[in-house]
Write a protein that binds this DNA or RNA. Structure first.
Lengths: 182, 182
DNA sequence: GGTCACTACTTGAACTCTCAACTTCCACCA
DNA sequence: TGGTGGAAGTTGAGAGTTCAAGTAGTGACC
């Protein structure tokens, strides 16, 4: 992915005032193959699941994920920020999403009694019904695209690898740039 | 991810006229952990790279990927459909994207001499310049988020796994629902 | 050489997401 | 008790994406 760029860059003079840390650590050919495979698979997979869910359930994959989180939560309700955190998205994105899910009748908002700024997103009966109806199709799509194609070792590996990457992107330090704190 | 849904579904009567193929093959707890890790990592990673590139280079990650493809291509030009195929996106999405990249001066369109319906997307000098300037920062971001955290075995594994998934999502059959044929 | 199915690409509207305000409320502390 | 800084959530505008429909050109067949 960076080969041709490197060719262009390598004969370039280092900018004198540049405050970077040494020469760019380009990806090796093998690393490039891995990275390309990742980009292609994740692009195709997200497209595939979005399309399946949009067609069958009338919502994008992320929105479906929000309903799942709510279904898993005690009393099928979660504070907005908790939900954003759990879905790894910004509160703004969530606000818009919940507005739309509310319009579809699958989620409703409730005020938080203990904190007047707070809002709960609550899965409605209609929301549960839509999940019952479409969960099987969705799991099947995930299976076909991912689990049916991987050996148990590869599945284990995938979980470990993605766990490491996810962890690395949400450092515990204060001031970390996490979507739900933006 | 599907546990609570299962709980709701399992005591449900099978719809008599349903034309599905047997009971839903729910994900096991372990599969759910893997899937959740994948969703979280890919969400966070795409957010991270989008943000880095938007801040530094003024474009989203996908658009940057298009410039990379063009930089790698002979004469730094590709037919629209080839580019869409190589980036795994729809031609419509690409049309809009190229329109924007053209407005920024990083890409220009050229007519195809041999097929009057055809268009080339061509990386401009300004486009090459923007890549020279921002490739190092982007590679560094990818390294920090992914390669620096994985062992060589994990990297190899990741490449194989994502290769399998990508392959599975672009079957060679005619009539396959591929984004760039939509 | 006419027509017809198909290919290449674009377009506009509806939808989603980002970014930067903005409102409201909480917690702390003087 | 009355600031004040930060937290919770929303909003609107602009950017990006999808979907369905459109234009225009190709090529194969009769």
């Amino acid at each position: 992915m960076f080969k041709e760029v490197r060719r262009t860059v390598e004969h370039m003079k280092r900018a004198p005032a540049s405050a970077d840390a040494g020469p760019p650590r380009w990806l090796t050919d093998e690393e490039q193959r891995v990275w390309r495979a990742y980009i292609e698979a994740s692009t195709l997979l997200e497209d595939h699941l979005d399309r399946q869910l949009q067609r069958d359930a009338g919502m994008p994959h992320v929105y479906y994920g929000l309903l799942v989180k709510l279904a898993e939560a005690p009393s099928r309700r979660l504070r907005m920020t908790e939900l954003a955190m759990s879905a790894k998205i910004t509160r703004s994105r969530l606000s818009h999403a919940v507005a739309r899910l509310e319009k579809s009748g699958w989620v409703r908002r409730e005020d938080c009694p203990s904190d007047k700024r707070g809002q709960f997103a609550v899965l409605t009966e209609k929301g549960q019904e839509v999940m019952r109806r479409h969960a099987p199709g969705h799991v099947e799509a995930v299976r076909q695209a991912v689990f049916d194609r991987l050996t148990p070792e590869q599945q284990k590996s995938l979980g470990e690898i993605m766990g490491i990457i996810a962890e690395g992107l949400q450092p515990s330090e204060t001031g970390a740039d996490l979507p739900w704190l933006r």
